[in-house]
């Protein structure tokens, strides 16, 4: 019986086209096919033998069928492909009518805004730095003074990649913020540093109108000798005023981020309070003086260098600037949305 199977599989293997294959199927599984015949003999056997032999024949039939299916779909693709390649296609042939009949295309609003942000910071002497989106726990957390038991490291915030952990780097993850590029750039270039890092970040977070698992941030880092919080206020007011094309007032208030000390939140004055009502502030970003542990992790001496870092969500900024109500519009690639920009 094994021989029967082997010769059947061999025949399938050798089939050159679907007609040949069809014939093989009839030869083995047709009304008088070789496997069919075997099944017919079962009725003459004892109950016991019927069970064992029957099982064996069924197995052979299954193996035959699965080999047959595989070959059939392979042949089908080959036949389609050979039909598709039957005629010579000249990849170099010029178009006779070269008039460009395309309508004007559009640039994604997020990228338009990001370009503006990059240009403003470039004008203020900042370099644009980059880093990987697939990061290690070391760069994303440890080096940023977020030890392993910190709440931000719980499964709910971070996407983990199936990969072997590394003794230094830990698990492989999708970066949850652009801050790891602080460390990578410090390692690469040392002090002084003046960079911004715009880029995509990921959070393990259910999606709704204001939350998405993917969004963009802009990180900023300035390390030099005598840099203080007053400079952060100055740079941010200048940046925001240029971006919004009007004078913008910002305020600091305390905020907690493990990689800065003092840690701050920066708010934008959105509406001046009228008739004794309080002003309306818009929460804009987290910032602060770079924590000495972070400078050390980046190989910079915290005794002789100091500076600040900030990070804001540019996706959110785009939503504010263009009055986009639902964050899911950003990544759903709907032309009715894209064509408005």
């Amino acid at each position: 019986m094994q021989d029967l199977l082997n010769s059947a599989l061999q025949a399938i293997e050798n089939a050159n086209n679907s007609n040949e294959l069809k014939e093989i199927e009839i030869k083995y599984l047709g009304k008088k096919g070789l496997i069919t015949e075997q099944l017919k003999t079962l009725k003459d056997l004892s109950e016991e033998d019927k069970r064992t032999t029957g099982k064996a024949i069924q197995e052979i039939k299954q193996k035959f069928l699965s080999a047959y299916q595989k070959k059939a779909s392979q042949l089908e693709i080959e036949e389609i492909n050979s039909k598709l390649t039957a005629e010579f296609f000249d990849i170099t042939l010029p178009r006779l009518n070269k008039i460009n009949h395309s309508k004007k295309g559009t640039i994604h609003p997020l990228n338009q805004l990001q370009q503006q942000v990059e240009e403003i910071f470039s004008d203020m002497g900042f370099e644009i730095a980059d880093g990987p989106e697939v990061e290690s726990e070391y760069y994303n957390f440890e080096a940023l003074n977020i030890p392993s038991h910190h709440p931000a490291r719980d499964m709910q915030d971070t996407f983990f990649i199936e990969n072997k952990a590394d003794p230094k780097h830990g698990e492989l993850i999708l970066r949850t913020h652009t801050s790891p590029v602080q460390i990578r750039t410090m390692e690469l270039k040392g002090a002084p540093l003046r960079i911004i890092v715009p880029g995509r970040v990921f959070r393990y977070e259910a999606t709704d109108a204001t939350h998405d698992s993917t969004f963009n941030q802009v990180e900023g880092l300035l390390i030099d000798k005598n840099i203080g919080l007053a400079d952060l206020k100055g740079i941010m007011e200048e940046f925001l005023s240029r971006l919004f094309e009007k004078d913008i007032t910002v305020r600091f208030r305390p905020g907690y981020f493990p990689f800065v000390e003092p840690g701050l939140e920066l708010d934008i004055l959105w509406q001046k309070g009228k008739n004794g009502q309080s002003d309306k502030w818009l929460e804009f970003m987290g910032a602060g003086m770079v924590h000495p542990n972070v400078l050390k992790a980046g190989g910079i001496d915290p005794e002789n260098n100091q500076g600040w870092a900030f990070g804001f969500g540019i996706t959110r900024l785009a939503m504010i600037k263009y009055q986009i109500a639902d964050i899911r519009q950003i990544h759903n690639s709907d032309l009715r949305f894209l064509k408005q920009f």
Binding site: N100, S102, K103, K104, G105, T106, I107, H108, L110, N111, E133, L174, R200, F202, S213, T214, I330, H331, S333, L335, L338, K339
Partner: peptide, 9 residues
């Protein structure tokens, strides 16, 4: 005449 999109990673 292309429209730029952003899709998930």
């Amino acid at each position: 005449g292309y429209n730029e999109t952003l899709n998930y990673s």
